[in-house]
Amino acid sequence: MRALLVVNPKATTTSSRTKDVLAHALASDLKLEVAATGYRGHARDLARDAAASGTVDLVVALGGDGTVNEVVNGLLTEGPSEHLPRLAVVPGGSTNVFARALGLPNDPVEATGALLDALAAGSERTIGLGRAATEGLPERWFTFTAGFGFDAGVVGRVEQSRRSGRRSTHTLYVDQAVRHFFGERRHRRTGPITLRIPGVEPVDGLVLSIVANTSPWTFLGTRPVYASPGAGFDTDLDLFGLTRMTAAGILRTIPQLLDASAVGPRGKHVVAYHDLAEFTLHSQETLPFQVDGDHLGERNEVSFSGVRRALRVIV
């Protein structure tokens, strides 16, 4: 079996030791090529070339959720196919939502052992993914979440902080979420987003809109956060939205987001849908947009679709 190991050396918890251990372990059973990313989008380019070659059986992503997202988008450049290389993931970022949602250990060395065991056993599953489309730009696949509005604004602030030298930590995300909350007073009470689902009356006034391909939505340290507990890799997309964000309302919602036994956040300002095949989020003004924690700038409209059985993953 021929494999490509894509390494993001700048990922939060990726070290040269982790890369060497993984490369050595994989090279004992596979014909392995190792490639380190050098620029944004490089992992996508490497995975695209691997898929186009027709000679690579497995692409292993060592990095965070952003690296995984790039690899997935590279593999799916021409769309899903039974002939695409399989995907394997070794977590190397700060949160690693996708890897943890697959049930992999969050420690890269332990995850390497789990990957080797899965390869030896021939263990894999075919998962569904989300796809986001905006006019005039390429479609973007996502593995666990996308956001339009408030949460994407938080992601943008975090990326800006990281460019100024701050390390990606859960504390940084919480800090920027609080700052963004108090800086977005106008949109907290009158949301500009309209949700349009085919055959359903539009829902206006969303402040927050989180699209989920699986659950949990994210992690706060070791605590999973459940925006859409029913979301999964075997269904289409879920949506969680809020039509108003007040301090009191957020304090009521946070315990619901952290409750694994609950059916998800509830309340008069909550908008929740499960297993949507397609829908559109529209805003009269441009709003921030993100997929898998990667800020993609601002948009007026984004169309989403769930694509079942899109990619084979080693687990």
Rank of each mutant, 00 (worst) to 15 (best):
D49N: 14
F182T: 14
A132T: 03
Q290G: 12
L239P: 01
H170P: 04
P255N: 02
Q256K: 11
G205F: 01
R308T: 08
R100F: 04
T77M: 05
P288E: 09
T18E: 11
F279M: 01
V7Q: 08
R312F: 10
L119I: 09
S123H: 14
P224Q: 13
A262M: 03
P202M: 09
L102T: 00
F233Q: 03
A61I: 11
N300D: 08
R266C: 04
T18D: 13
R17Q: 15
A260G: 12
L257K: 03
T169K: 10
P255T: 01
L75R: 06
V307P: 01
L137D: 12
V203H: 00
R189C: 06
R266I: 07
Y273H: 15
L84K: 06
R186T: 13
V225L: 13
G63N: 08
A247E: 14
V109T: 11
R2H: 13
N300S: 12
F219R: 03
V71D: 04
F142Q: 06
A52F: 01
S261F: 05
A277D: 13
P9F: 06
L26F: 08
H24D: 15
V174Y: 08
Y273S: 00
D292Q: 11
L281Y: 01
G147V: 07
N8K: 10
Q284A: 13
R163K: 14
G74H: 09
T143Y: 02
S261P: 05
D151R: 06
V72H: 05
L208H: 12
H187P: 02
G92E: 07
S305N: 05
D236V: 04
E184C: 14
L311T: 11
Q284R: 11
R166W: 06
G128H: 03
I197C: 03
A43N: 03
G41R: 13
R140H: 15
D49T: 14
L296P: 14
A88H: 03
R309L: 14
G221V: 11
L242Q: 02
L206A: 00
A247N: 07
G93K: 06
P265N: 12
L237P: 05
V6Q: 12
K31W: 12
N8E: 11
T134M: 13
G306L: 13
T246R: 07
V68A: 10
T55R: 12
L104Y: 02
L32E: 02
L276A: 07
H170W: 10
Q256L: 07
A61V: 11
T243E: 03
R223T: 15
Y173I: 14
D107W: 06
T253R: 04
V178N: 07
T14I: 04
K31P: 03
H269C: 04
F304Q: 01
